[in-house]
């Protein structure tokens, strides 16, 4: 067993990489007294290759959305850095930062909230183009129509003049995806893109994202709390717990052979539809997810872990072990 410093593909120059990434939110009393920090992202490392689709999975409050926003440049990292195509995000200023914004598309969780309710679809899709200086109206119109067709809202004419509230949830989410794609980004970050949608629509949106990702050769970072939606829509999974990545592996390997006790607990808690479910209790680790304000020392999962080893798990941070090929897990069990 060897330990490796980063979860990630080493064979190719990464499109986006995080090194020792920390995003903390300081809590202040009366505006100046520092009383602590919410450690939303607390030491995350990974590298995503161009054209790769990965999923970040974790429960609410594990820091996955903060990670997404840090990658988008909406939060400044407290420590560490994000590198995109070889440049550190922290160095980008002014025009370079704006150019980076065109390189990264963002799909949010709540499709209705993600669209300004007072603008029609045409205008919503025109906004990023206007912001990025596409002055020619005909050019804008052409790109808007192309984007609508790409997310399979066709014929585009039927949707251009609609306001968000006139569309169904699935259609709204397609508009959000079209907006994320309209500046031709190289990286697409989708934060819980289907959790607010109905079961019958979810699959369509996931298929669409995957299809576009393959067609365009995009790097896709798909953030979700639901492991069951990951299998066909990502190649690699990062499991997050309390601000850290605890396990990462190719999808099938992780789902079929989970190594970290937290991943195992998460998988055990998820039911597939089956009448037998009603008669058996699920195994659930005791306790609640830790507070990010006062996380447990060393391994964040040790207070709930069935394999807790006193004097080790609560004393020293586990490094990333590689218990299987291409599979990393931050747990002392693999020592």
């Amino acid at each position: 067993m060897t330990s490796s410093p980063a979860h990630g593909a080493d064979d190719q120059a990464p499109l986006i990489a995080a090194r020792d990434l920390h995003t903390w939110f300081e809590l202040r009393q009366w505006g100046f007294l520092r009383v602590g920090a919410v450690r939303a992202v607390d030491g995350v490392e990974f590298a995503l290759a161009p054209g790769e689709a990965v999923a970040f999975v974790g429960e609410s409050g594990c820091g996955k959305s903060t990670l997404a926003r840090t990658l988008l440049g909406l939060h400044r990292p407290t420590r560490g850095e994000v590198r995109f195509a070889g440049r550190s995000l922290g160095e980008l200023q002014g025009r370079a930062l704006k150019a980076y914004r065109a390189e990264v598309g963002y799909v949010q969780q709540d499709p209705y909230g993600a669209l300004p309710p007072f603008l029609d679809v045409r205008r919503i899709l025109a906004e990023p183009l206007i912001v990025h200086g596409v002055r020619d109206r005909a050019e804008r119109e052409r790109r808007i129509r192309a984007a609508l067709e790409e997310v399979r809202l066709s014929p585009a004419e039927a949707f251009l003049n609609q306001f968000p509230h006139m569309l169904s949830g699935g259609q709204q989410q397609r508009v959000v995806i079209a907006r994320a794609l309209i500046l031709a980004p190289r990286l697409l970050i989708a934060d819980e893109p289907v959790s607010m949608l109905d079961a019958s629509v979810r699959v369509e949106i996931l298929e669409l994202l995957r299809h576009i990702q393959r067609e365009r050769g995009l790097t896709l970072a798909f953030i979700t709390h639901d492991l069951s939606t990951v299998r066909h829509y990502a190649e690699r999974i990062f499991v997050m717990y309390a601000g850290r990545v605890v396990e990462s592996a190719p999808v099938d390997d992780l789902l079929d052979h989970p190594q970290h006790p937290y991943t195992q607990a998460l998988l055990a808690a998820i039911a597939d539809p089956d009448a037998a479910n009603a008669t058996r209790l699920r195994e659930v680790p005791a306790g609640e997810p830790p507070s990010l304000l006062h996380p447990p020392a060393a391994c964040r999962f040790h207070p709930r872990c069935p394999h807790f080893m006193a004097g080790l798990c609560d004393v020293e941070d586990p490094p990333d072990f590689s218990p299987r090929r291409d599979h990393r897990s931050a747990c002392w069990l693999h020592r």
């Binding site: 169904s168 699935g170 079961a199 019958s200 629509v201 979810r202 699959v203 369509e204 996931l206 298929e207 639901d226 492991l227 069951s228 939606t229 299998r231 066909h232 099938d252 789902l255 998988l267 998820i270 597939d272 539809p273």
Partner: peptide, 22 residues
Amino acid sequence: RMLMASVPRLRQRARPEAIPGE
């Protein structure tokens, strides 16, 4: 039937199938 087929499952490799329309 279609609803059941559209549900992504953790422990099965079969690809879920979407229900067309609204």
